[in-house]
Simulated assay, not measured.
Amino acid sequence: MSETILEISGLSKRYGRIQAVNQLDLQVQKGSVFGLLGPNGSGKSTTLGILLGVTQKDSGDYKWFGQEPTAESRKRIGAILESPTFYPYLSARQNLNIVSEIKNVERSRINEVLTQVGLIERADYPFKTFSLGMKQRLAIASALLADPELLILDEPTNGLDPQGIAEIRELIIDIAKSGKTIILASHLLDEVQKVCTDFAVLKTGNKIFQGSVAESLSGNDGVELSSDNMEQLQKLCNNYKNSFRISTNNLGRIVMSFKEEEDISQFHKYLIDNGVVLTHLSYISKSLEKQFLELLSA
């Protein structure tokens, strides 16, 4: 059985009339890349702020590494909240020298983390000359400096261009492969789908779903169909005993899902037996985006 790194029970926080976090229960297992997913204002950053001791909770409890939070337990955590902030006229190396003094970390770690985040060749350039993606990578290097067991990243790709997003995504995957547990807050579905092993969805401070990314994406979301006789195909789909949801996409093809798991060969035989030969048949891959939107609209 895997070790529980974080356990949250009944965590709540209110700002005036706004319930930012409401009776949140959550568990994160060691070695996972856990996505905290939700639109802006869903309570992600407030939750992370409470967990890191930056924001005061109203009620509820949480444990790091099976214990009540202490200064010692927080030393095992590296975190980035909001935008990266460094001295603009100092180099990446000089900024990390300051961080190493604050965290009481040997300066020999600086080259190691700069290499890990792909900034070693820019180590002696001023921070003000860095792109937004490079600034974000330096912030991750700073969080990694004390070699934490757990890394917390709040919207790490916010504001980045596609190339910057891809670079940060690959960096997170590499860090996870080194054995660290990662908690990643994001409103980007693609980011969570490609990086995370597990995720929870927050909506107006409430957890509305928690599960495994692999399980959520397993199987398919139905089929896409076309035939030379679309009218007859539509009629047969409507009459099929296991049909659930039928629509037409912008290519004029029928999109069909099933009530229960379907042996597609049986469905195909049903069509042929009734005089329809398909010119197109493809599975529709599941996506977190569709599930996410369904959860938020429920």
Rank of each mutant, 00 (worst) to 15 (best):
D174P: 06
G205P: 05
G159S: 13
Q116A: 13
L188F: 06
M134Y: 01
I208D: 00
S142R: 09
D190Q: 11
D190M: 12
K180T: 04
L153K: 02
P162W: 04
L188D: 12
K203N: 08
I173C: 15
I173S: 15
G118N: 10
R122C: 07
D198M: 09
F130N: 03
G211E: 05
Q136P: 14
K180W: 02
L151F: 05
G118Q: 09
S108N: 15
A146Q: 12
G159H: 11
R122V: 11
R109I: 11
G211L: 10
E167A: 07
N206C: 07
L150E: 07
L160E: 06
E155P: 09
T197V: 00
D154W: 07
Y125D: 14
G118K: 07
S212H: 13
M134T: 02
P162N: 07
A143E: 03
L119F: 12
L138K: 00
D154S: 06
S178M: 10
L114F: 05
S131P: 15
G179F: 07
Y125H: 15
V195M: 04
I168N: 00
N111P: 08
I140K: 00
P126Q: 05
S186V: 14
I208Q: 00
E215F: 10
K203S: 02
A123H: 04
P148C: 14
D174H: 14
A141Y: 05
P126G: 05
V192L: 03
L132P: 11
E167H: 06
E215N: 15
T129P: 09
P126T: 01
N158Y: 07
S212M: 11
S142L: 04
G133Y: 04
G159C: 14
L138R: 02
I172A: 07
E170D: 12
V201R: 00
R169K: 13
G205M: 00
P162T: 02
K128G: 08
I183V: 12
A214I: 09
Q116P: 09
K128T: 03
L189Q: 04
K203V: 00
C196T: 01
H187V: 13
T181L: 07
K135Q: 10
F199Q: 06
T129N: 10
L202F: 01
A139C: 13
A143G: 10
L153Q: 01
L119K: 07
S186A: 15
I172M: 11
F199H: 05
H187D: 08
R169C: 03
I175T: 03
K135P: 06
R109W: 09
C196G: 01
D124G: 07
